[in-house]
Lab assay of single mutants.
Amino acid sequence: MGTYKLILNGKTLKGETTTEAVDAATAEKVFKQYANDNGVDGEWTYDDATKTFTVTE
């Protein structure tokens, strides 16, 4: 398990959240659902060194 971070750079929603997941693929699924639930759809990037996903609208 590891802690993964999501940085939201949406047009109307900005912020950060974290999740505990077994791997990056699992964290990505959780974060994409979170972003979708909050109406954020954009370009995704992932930094393996910091376990950080970023979505920018």
Results as ranks from 00 to 15, higher is better:
1 M>H: 08
1 M>N: 11
1 M>I: 07
2 G>R: 12
2 G>H: 15
2 G>P: 06
2 G>T: 11
3 T>R: 09
3 T>H: 11
3 T>C: 06
4 Y>Q: 00
4 Y>C: 01
5 K>C: 04
5 K>F: 05
6 L>H: 01
6 L>P: 00
6 L>E: 00
6 L>D: 01
7 I>S: 04
7 I>Y: 08
7 I>K: 10
8 L>T: 05
8 L>D: 01
9 N>C: 05
9 N>L: 15
9 N>M: 14
9 N>D: 12
10 G>P: 03
11 K>T: 15
11 K>C: 06
11 K>N: 12
11 K>P: 12
12 T>K: 09
12 T>I: 12
12 T>N: 09
12 T>C: 05
12 T>V: 11
12 T>R: 05
13 L>E: 11
13 L>W: 13
13 L>I: 15
14 K>F: 08
14 K>L: 11
15 G>V: 14
16 E>I: 05
16 E>Y: 08
17 T>K: 15
17 T>F: 14
17 T>E: 07
18 T>S: 15
18 T>E: 08
18 T>Y: 12
18 T>G: 04
19 T>Y: 13
19 T>W: 10
19 T>R: 05
19 T>E: 04
19 T>K: 04
19 T>D: 03
20 E>Q: 12
20 E>T: 11
20 E>L: 14
21 A>H: 03
21 A>K: 03
22 V>L: 15
22 V>N: 13
22 V>M: 09
22 V>R: 14
22 V>C: 05
22 V>S: 12
23 D>A: 04
23 D>K: 03
23 D>S: 12
23 D>E: 05
23 D>R: 03
24 A>W: 12
24 A>V: 14
24 A>L: 15
25 A>P: 14
25 A>N: 10
25 A>H: 10
25 A>C: 06
25 A>F: 10
26 T>N: 09
27 A>R: 00
27 A>D: 00
27 A>G: 02
28 E>L: 15
28 E>M: 15
28 E>S: 08
28 E>F: 12
28 E>I: 11
29 K>M: 14
29 K>Q: 12
29 K>V: 10
30 V>F: 13
30 V>P: 01
31 F>L: 07
31 F>M: 03
32 K>S: 05
32 K>T: 07
32 K>N: 05
32 K>V: 08
33 Q>L: 07
33 Q>A: 13
34 Y>W: 08
34 Y>T: 03
34 Y>Q: 03
35 A>L: 14
35 A>D: 01
35 A>F: 03
35 A>P: 01
35 A>T: 08
36 N>D: 15
36 N>S: 11
36 N>A: 08
36 N>Y: 09
37 D>N: 06
37 D>A: 13
37 D>K: 10
38 N>M: 14
38 N>Q: 10
40 V>S: 03
40 V>Y: 05
41 D>T: 07
41 D>I: 12
42 G>L: 03
42 G>Q: 02
43 E>I: 11
43 E>M: 10
43 E>F: 10
43 E>Q: 11
43 E>Y: 09
43 E>L: 09
43 E>V: 12
43 E>D: 15
44 W>F: 04
44 W>K: 00
45 T>K: 13
45 T>E: 10
45 T>F: 11
46 Y>Q: 01
46 Y>E: 00
46 Y>I: 02
46 Y>T: 01
47 D>E: 09
47 D>H: 11
47 D>C: 05
47 D>N: 08
48 D>P: 11
48 D>T: 14
49 A>V: 13
49 A>N: 08
49 A>I: 13
50 T>V: 09
50 T>W: 05
50 T>P: 02
51 K>T: 04
51 K>S: 10
51 K>D: 03
52 T>P: 00
52 T>G: 02
52 T>M: 04
52 T>W: 02
53 F>H: 02
53 F>Y: 06
53 F>Q: 00
53 F>P: 00
54 T>G: 03
54 T>P: 00
55 V>W: 04
55 V>E: 01
56 T>W: 08
56 T>G: 06
56 T>E: 09
56 T>N: 08
56 T>C: 05
56 T>P: 01
57 E>C: 03
